[in-house]
């Protein structure tokens, strides 16, 4: 198929970017979206032009590296997939495809389509962990009984790959779904109880300091999340936060 791509090009973090049009021909419907961009970059390199920079790593939907706002939606028009899992069969011959970086003040553009998502790392570092004594007397986590329902919910929250689609989809660029998933995965388990109070307070504080917006409960994050992280996690984080605030 033949397509017209409108791609955000930006030389570096300090230079103003703009949308640039690229026609591209001979795209197979079985190609992934990133393979289509690989084809474009081969053409650009062969013409002596700068290739389009974009994030990618595993290309199998588990690393959370790939991003891209495609035709106004994070990870494109398909549901439950990352950009690397998006196939060109989702588009038609002659389509114009708009490709932009994830937009948020807390996700500054580094170059072209690559954004700096280290704000997520800092939220994690603020409390997204448990402290385990590894002095040789470590207790096997499986020796602590966990309710099956809680274990399933915790596992589901833990499937968040931190791609940032929730922020990109939200009209307020809110990181509540990401932070809530990281809070919930521990809040639901006995191992997470010891640091529960500090965890939620510190992670929410960091989230606010990074400049993410507020949650308007529109649900866009849940729909666009490639891992289907539920809004239930946001409600749980709110409960955790209120309870922790009363204790501190």
């Amino acid at each position: 198929m033949n397509l017209k791509l409108k791609i955000w090009r930006q030389k570096d973090a300090n230079t103003k970017g703009k949308m640039v049009e690229y026609p591209i021909a001979g795209i197979e419907e079985d190609m992934s979206f990133l393979e289509m961009l690989d084809v474009l970059n081969e053409e650009l390199i062969s013409k002596g032009e700068e290739p389009v920079e974009f994030d990618h790593d595993c290309r199998e939907g588990i690393c959370g590296a790939c991003s891209l706002q495609i035709n106004g939606e994070p990870h494109g028009p398909d549901r439950g997939v990352t950009t690397c899992q998006l196939h060109m069969r989702m588009f038609k011959d002659g389509d114009t495809i708009t490709i932009e970086p994830f937009r948020a003040t807390a996700f500054p553009v580094i170059k072209d389509l690559i954004v700096d998502r280290s704000s997520f790392d800092r939220i994690q570092q603020a409390g997204g962990f448990i402290s385990v004594n590894t002095s040789g007397n470590t207790i096997d986590a499986n020796s602590i009984p966990v309710n099956k329902d809680d274990a399933d919910k915790s596992f589901n929250a833990a499937t968040c790959i931190g791609c940032g689609a929730c922020v990109a989809a939200c009209k307020n660029a809110s990181a509540m779904l990401f932070t809530a998933a990281k809070v919930s995965q521990f809040a639901l388990l006995p191992q997470g109880q010891i640091e529960a109070t500090d965890r939620v307070l510190n992670m929410v504080k960091q989230m606010d300091e990074e400049g993410f917006g507020n949650c308007s409960n529109t649900g866009a994050c849940e729909i666009e999340c490639p891992k289907g992280i539920s809004l239930e996690n946001i409600a749980r984080m709110n409960r955790e936060y209120l309870s922790a605030s009363l204790k501190k």
Binding site: T98, A104, T105, V109, F212
Partner: peptide, 13 residues
């Protein structure tokens, strides 16, 4: 605060 959280708008949203 919500407006400040996205300083550059999307061309397509």
């Amino acid at each position: 605060k919500n407006k400040k959280a996205r300083n550059i708008k999307y061309a397509s949203f």
